[in-house]
């Protein structure tokens, strides 16, 4: 029992990060129907930015805020300068551009930050001495840093849901997601909303990237690739146009990953099933879910017209 609880809790912490990145994907997808393949690498670049600011003597938390603010601006500029004009050119153009951005941001990180390829030490965001944990019934332990990540993500998610549900901007975002034409007819400046979606998404990604780097105590050029894949899997599982789906999808993927990685090990004392296999199992589960619900757990199915 203690093991189970512990694995679930650890899985929730990692899963919460997937949810955050997945939320970023969903925010963009809802607005424009585009998958941002560069989501992970934009977050990576911002994480290096936070590292750099922190390296210049700014406290880490503040550095992360600044990086998230920077990402907000960069995200908006990318939408305005690249995505919007490309969207008018051809249906493939946006896909190609996000792939180009994927490559550009990853290699730019390598160019600008010395040692990025091998890894730079990233500061800790939460107390993480070996003794920093809660004792839970059944002998499970819950490390402060996992608690910290989970709580941080839940707070950000709650704020995002407040934004979507309780503010006028959020209403406008939901309008654009549901029916862009009617949103325009109701007076929503849809272009500005799309720009805002990209900005918001980039800044959510930046925070997600920093949380990953914080837990790993390291950031390198490969940090975000796997995380992005799992986050996109989470978004798919939950339904690409559903913020709630992103959260549920991310958390469940984290838990599945943790259980599949740890359980067989404790049963057989073998490491035969490693993290990679855990991901394979997670993907298999997603495939099964999608076969039953082709638009994910919470995604909306729009009827196609002839």
């Amino acid at each position: 029992m203690g093991h189970l609880l512990q694995y679930v809790l650890n899985g929730l912490a990692r899963g919460s990060i997937y949810s955050l990145i997945a939320l970023g994907l969903v925010v963009i997808y809802r607005g424009t129907g585009h998958l941002n393949f560069a989501q992970g690498e934009m977050a990576l670049f911002a994480t290096f930015g936070a590292w750099w600011i922190n390296d210049h003597g700014v406290p880490l938390w503040l550095a992360i805020m600044i990086a998230a603010g920077g990402a907000f601006v960069v995200g908006g500029v990318i939408e305005f300068g690249l995505i919007r004009p490309a969207g008018k050119k051809s249906p493939f153009a946006v896909v190609v551009i996000t792939i180009g951005l994927f490559q550009a941001f990853n290699s730019l990180s390598g160019l600008l930050f010395k040692g990025a390829a091998t890894g730079l030490p990233f500061g800790t965001l939460f107390p993480n001495k070996p003794t920093d944990f809660f004792r839970l019934p059944g002998g499970a332990i819950w490390r402060y840093e996992y608690v910290g990540v989970l709580v941080t993500v839940l707070v950000i998610t709650a704020l995002l849901f407040l934004l979507f549900q309780k503010t006028k901007v959020g209403l406008a975002m939901r309008m654009v997601a549901n029916n862009p034409d009617s949103a325009k007819l109701a007076g929503v400046p849809t272009n500005k909303i799309l720009m805002l979606s990209w900005a918001l998404s980039a800044s959510i990604g930046a925070i997600g990237g920093c949380l990953v780097a914080g837990i790993n105590a390291n950031v390198n050029l490969g940090t975000m690739f796997g995380v992005f894949l799992l986050a996109s899997a989470a978004a798919t599982l939950g339904g690409l146009d559903s913020p709630l789906g992103a959260v549920v999808g991310g958390l469940s993927l984290g838990v599945i990953e943790s259980l599949v990685t740890n359980y067989p090990k404790s049963w057989w004392g073998s490491t035969y099933i490693g993290a990679d296999t855990a991901i394979a199992v997670a993907f298999l589960i997603i495939l099964v879910v999608l076969l039953v619900r082709p638009s994910g757990l919470f995604g909306s199915t729009r009827v196609e017209r002839v």
């Binding site: 939901r174 309008m175 549901n178 009617s182 949103a183 109701a186 007076g187």
Partner: peptide, 17 residues
């Protein structure tokens, strides 16, 4: 052209954007 995923009340709020 209603916002099918929004509640009736939110549709009206949307109209007052």
């Amino acid at each position: 052209g209603t916002f099918t995923d929004l509640t009736v009340e939110d549709n009206l709020r949307a109209g007052a954007f």
